[in-house]
Simulated assay, not measured.
Amino acid sequence: MKRLIIASLLSLFFVQFGLGQANCSKYYPMIEGASFEYTNYDRKGKSDGTASYQVTNVSTIGENTSATMAMELNDKKGKEIYKTDYEFTCTGNMVTVDYQSLVPTTMLEQYKDMEMDISGTDLELPNNLSVGQQLSDANVTLKISMSGVNINTTIDLVNRKVEKKESITTSAGTFDCYVIYTDNNVKAMMINQSFPSRVWFAEGVGMIKQESYNKSGKLMGSTVLTKYSK
């Protein structure tokens, strides 16, 4: 279950685009062909696979700019685990992430042949970030019908706030970032689990780093930008 939770967060934050509309988004650049590679690490800092993303289409209608992102997850041996496409929309001073991206890709693959209903509230990231700023909550509810049995899973992202500014260095370079803290609540059948996470965002690039923790605050795993091209 922990790996499913982490995967859902990666799906949320792993999208880096390039600007397709002037001043549309500082943190999700929208340029066709832009590509990003992240390396996932376990709690001991050992590589646990990669996630690759590429912008395959950008379109602008009026004040709205939409981009399609192709995502591929690979295990630590380089074997493909899952592929999918999803969309981001930028309007004015805000980027909106489709709430369906909150659903773990591994869960979608596991239940792809079953009746599934997904509902929720989109994730928002404004351009004008500042330390101490409170951000809107987001959530998704997944209802699966399997042989007459209903399985409900709810993922709530709450208490989202801009915690601090910090400069971090990865193999992709050194970046000045805003750090966004989130409490992640997951309810699935008899499981009711809560854990915090932090995401480092850099202007013009997007997500640089993500860390997930258990309820005691100990690191469960991390994801780091290792390559990008725009």
Rank of each mutant, 00 (worst) to 15 (best):
G132A: 02
L102E: 03
K143E: 12
S136L: 13
M190Y: 11
G221F: 05
L135M: 08
R198E: 13
A51K: 10
A67R: 01
F88E: 03
D85S: 07
V131T: 11
I155F: 04
N57S: 14
R43G: 05
I61A: 10
R160G: 06
K76Q: 15
I61D: 09
S212F: 00
K76G: 07
V186R: 05
I6Y: 00
S35R: 14
G120H: 08
K76S: 15
I81E: 09
S130I: 09
T68L: 08
G18Y: 03
T141F: 03
D117E: 15
I81C: 05
M190P: 11
L129A: 03
M69R: 11
K44H: 13
N127T: 08
C177L: 01
F13Q: 00
L12P: 00
N184M: 07
Y178I: 02
N23W: 11
V224Q: 12
S167H: 05
P104F: 08
Y28T: 12
T106Q: 09
E115D: 13
Y213H: 11
G120A: 03
L123A: 06
R43E: 14
T56M: 07
Y228H: 15
V103S: 05
D156T: 10
D113T: 15
Y111D: 05
S197F: 00
N185A: 10
M30T: 13
E72Q: 14
Y228T: 14
L219Q: 07
S136V: 12
G92C: 05
M116W: 02
I5E: 05
D98S: 09
L142D: 00
N152E: 14
L4D: 06
G204H: 09
E80D: 08
G78P: 04
T226Q: 07
V186P: 00
S136F: 02
Q21D: 12
T65Y: 12
M207S: 09
L219Y: 02
V205Q: 04
D75V: 05
N64Y: 05
C177R: 02
T154P: 02
N128C: 06
E211W: 01
T226Y: 08
T182V: 14
V103R: 09
M94T: 09
V97Q: 06
S59Q: 13
E63P: 06
L142H: 05
C177K: 02
T121V: 15
T65G: 00
K165Q: 15
N128Y: 04
L102T: 06
S171D: 10
V58G: 03
R160F: 09
T68Y: 03
N192H: 11
Q133S: 04
I144V: 15
